[in-house]
């Protein structure tokens, strides 16, 4: 085996594809032919590609990672819900003053009762009138209806977003 054979065998190993110069040498050198045959046999032992089912099963087993939960956009649904609720509050005259906060529990009860009666009044009015929206507006309750809808929608959204995050974290 000549020194040239050593170089050629290294090229066969490291470069894989046989260029014309190597190919010419291989036709006459049995040692290099054997080396090429050995490398080809060994290279054929490399593992085959992963099948789709196996990939899908591993992907399905991945949990929600801590780094995923820290992504800012995962908070967007909850933030959108808060924003919606805040818009509703602004529409009815901005956020309550701190002194008002103490009376909130009692006010909430009154508000619920009042909302109920308003809703019933609105339904009755809508049934008797041709335009429900006009009726509500005429009763001075359009802002309240918008506030109620936005607050319910926003609050519900926040709750759903937080529940979904909690579930996916498990």
């Amino acid at each position: 085996m000549s020194p040239a054979c050593s170089d050629i065998q290294r090229r066969i190993e490291e470069e894989g594809a046989v260029d014309p110069a190597v190919g010419t040498h291989l036709t006459t050198c049995r040692a290099c032919q054997a080396h090429a045959a050995l490398v080809a046999q060994l290279d054929s032992l490399a593992p085959a590609a992963a099948d789709d089912e196996r990939v899908a099963s591993i992907m399905a087993a991945l949990p929600l990672a801590a780094w995923q939960r820290r992504r800012f956009w995962t908070w967007l649904p909850a933030a959108a819900g808060f924003l919606l609720a805040a818009v509703g509050l602004v529409l009815v005259g901005a956020l309550p003053a701190p002194t008002v906060l103490g009376s909130l529990p009692q006010a909430a009860g009154s508000l619920l009762g009042w909302l109920g009666s308003r809703a019933l009044d609105t339904l009755v009015a809508a049934r008797s009138g041709s335009d429900a929206l006009q009726t509500v507006a005429a009763a001075g309750g359009l802002g309240l209806v918008i506030w109620t809808l936005l607050t319910l929608l926003g609050g519900g959204w926040v709750v759903m977003a937080l529940v979904r995050r909690g579930r996916s974290a498990r």
Partner: peptide, 8 residues
């Protein structure tokens, strides 16, 4: 390997 087309 000789059977595959090469030999030492």
């Amino acid at each position: 390997l000789g059977q595959l087309g090469g030999a030492t």
